[in-house]
């Protein structure tokens, strides 16, 4: 049986790559009996959602007028 620590590392790895079948099985077995790990995995999925949504937000970051001028000079002088 996997420990919780091993399970959550696999849970994270599962977001980045395809796990081997035995790893998936071991993870599932552990999750069946461990509510804390189930929560953790849910939280990880939520984090992924947040990071994607943060990236898509209309942001209030703008090029300053000075920066815009500097860029304009450089790109139009070539």
């Amino acid at each position: 049986m996997l420990s919780c620590k091993q399970t959550i590392e696999l849970g994270s790895k599962n977001l980045d790559t395809v796990l081997a079948w035995h790893q998936r099985l071991e993870m599932k077995l552990h999750l069946m009996v461990c509510h804390n790990c189930r929560r953790y995995i849910k939280h990880l999925r939520f984090l992924q959602k947040v990071i994607v949504s943060i990236d898509k937000q209309d942001s209030n970051i703008h090029l300053s007028e000075q920066a815009r001028e500097r860029i304009r000079k450089k790109i139009f002088s070539k």
């Binding site: 420990s3 804390n36 849910k42 959602k49 949504s53």
Partner: peptide, 22 residues
């Protein structure tokens, strides 16, 4: 977060309706 055997030593919170926070 974990004891020496690698089991949780804390209780994780349930994040209620997380999508609403987005």
């Amino acid at each position: 977060q974990f004891d020496q055997r690698g089991h949780w030593s804390i209780e994780l919170l349930e994040w209620k309706t997380p999508d609403q926070h987005l």
